[in-house]
């Protein structure tokens, strides 16, 4: 499986390069029907480490939409080790794909075009790798999440913020289908207000304590002399994302936590 994945990754790269070459520098170029090329850049993250107040993101490509039940079904059919009754407990908790009708059957509670949810980080990662892709990093995901419909960097866009806050407060009855919301500046759908999404380094260490200052139980949980607590406290929706990710473990599955995949592109593209 690994050589095949590498091979398809090469194919993907060529396809990306061929189509990105002409579209580069324009708004939301479209290299493949399901991928969007994201220009590199830098931003001031919600959470800042001392001396590293800006985060640099290299150009990459990202799925335009979260992965659907239909795509994940094809994946578990081809990779039975990731089916509900076969997955190792180390890699997915007991609620993994619990809303599906069976190991390889969606059933009435999981429409094909809904985002797949109740998937663990391990499963999401395995899916992306099977496509020759990877999970986006937290920095990449947060970079594109700052975009409004018209601007690549509008983390406090009132319309977007209002939509996200409304979502936070809404009981989640049924999930909409993917792609129903308007795309943002990068041509990405559903970054907000549909599902939360896994990132590769969801378990990054964000620390506001000097870990050597060991004064009692509960202190010194982290090592990191470079850490500091400076944060953009006004960016509440970003705070919620960081907070949520910090509460996860890799085997957890959650009814409104899905994912999308990313791909590398060559430097300079």
């Amino acid at each position: 499986m690994i050589p095949a994945a590498r091979w398809s990754s090469t194919l993907l790269l060529s396809a990306l390069l061929a189509s990105a070459a002409t579209a580069w520098g324009q708004r939301a170029p479209q290299p493949a029907p399901d991928l969007r090329v994201i220009r590199g850049g830098e931003y001031r993250p919600f959470y800042r480490l001392r001396g590293r107040e800006r985060v640099t993101v290299r150009a990459f490509a990202l799925d335009a939409r979260p992965v659907t039940n239909e795509r994940f079904l094809a994946f578990v059919r081809a990779n039975p080790a990731w089916q509900r009754t076969r997955v190792r407990r180390l890699f997915a908790d007991q609620d993994y794909l619990a809303h599906w009708a069976g190991d390889a059957e969606l059933g009435p509670s999981a429409r094909p075009s809904q985002p797949v949810t109740r998937v663990s980080w391990f499963a999401a990662r395995a899916f992306c790798e099977a496509q020759g892709r990877r999970l986006p990093t937290e920095a990449e995901w947060e970079y594109v999440a700052r975009a409004s419909e018209r601007s690549p960097d509008a983390p406090r866009d009132p319309a977007t913020t209002a939509r996200i806050l409304a979502w936070y407060g809404r009981p989640n009855a049924t999930l909409e289908d993917v792609g129903a919301s308007r795309p943002n500046y990068w041509g990405l759908h559903d970054l907000h207000a549909l599902v939360w999404e896994w990132v590769e380094d969801f378990n990054s260490a964000l620390v506001v304590t000097d870990s050597r200052d060991n004064q009692g139980p509960g202190i010194a949980r982290f090592c990191g002399a470079a850490s500091s607590g400076a944060a953009d406290v006004g960016d509440y929706v970003a705070f919620m994302r960081y907070a949520f990710r910090q509460s996860l473990r890799g085997s957890y599955t959650v009814r409104n936590l899905g994912f999308r995949c990313a791909a590398d592109i060559a430097p300079g593209e």
Partner: peptide
């Protein structure tokens, strides 16, 4: 000084709407 974001996170995550897993 010992407060971590994670701690804050848990507190907040449990305090907000039902859409917050």
């Amino acid at each position: 000084r010992s407060m971590t974001l994670g701690l804050l996170a848990l507190t907040l995550a449990s305090a907000c709407g039902r859409n917050t897993p």
